[in-house]
Design a protein around this nucleic acid. Sequence first.
DNA 1: CGGTATCCCTCCGGATACTG
DNA 2: CAGTATCCGGAGGGATACCG
Lengths: 121, 121
Amino acid sequence: MELVHAIQNHCNCPIEATLNVIGGKWKPMILCLLANDTLRYNRIQQLIPEVSPKMLTKQLRELEGDGLISRKMYPEIPPKVEYSITDLGRTVLPVLKTLLEWGAEYLGKKCIATIQVNADN
Amino acid sequence: MELVHAIQNHCNCPIEATLNVIGGKWKPMILCLLANDTLRYNRIQQLIPEVSPKMLTKQLRELEGDGLISRKMYPEIPPKVEYSITDLGRTVLPVLKTLLEWGAEYLGKKCIATIQVNADN
DNA sequence: CGGTATCCCTCCGGATACTG
DNA sequence: CAGTATCCGGAGGGATACCG
């Protein structure tokens, strides 16, 4: 019931705010990738072949702007840029897990049953 | 974390699936409203003044198509249509709560007290 | 290597008017 | 009452080429 008011008041509804932060098409994927490793731009692109450079840059910038990931640039030639998850970004992982579990259970999406380090491309 | 492989495998990523279902602009709001009451079309529109009829209809149809809400039509003149949440829809309320709590805590969005989720868990 | 710039097209979504 | 119909601007997002 309070939930209703939270939204009705419409004072920056936290649900919408959260969705704005993690709802981007590639953001959950990026966050999960960075949860384990610090990765360079091209490496991310390899791991997500479907994303175009423009979109990848956009999603990374937004995640950085929201403080979920950090971008470290090494002034070298050739350039080197490393993306990693921040402490704030780590706090969102349980939220993603919730989304994953609901989707898996109620939408019948599998592919999470035996997820050890066995899966490979 | 296991999340990575779930997403890397990319076989209908459950996170994306969940976001597709609840990520619509007005869907969390509609679900929360219907969590407490069965409501008629115009009543929903009153409670969410910002939504246009076109968008409201679209979001309702999508929620219905995904099985989260049900639409009951009374063949009367004037017409009467009631929307209510389904059992499946109720299972998503804890997910919304997770989103709300994260947004409230880490994005500093207030305006919440407690959420009543009628499903036990 | 790590991006921009540009083109282009689709779809989102608001506003308004209308209808069975 | 519960929606459609229509118009329209703008954002989303793919493809390709180019740059520091």
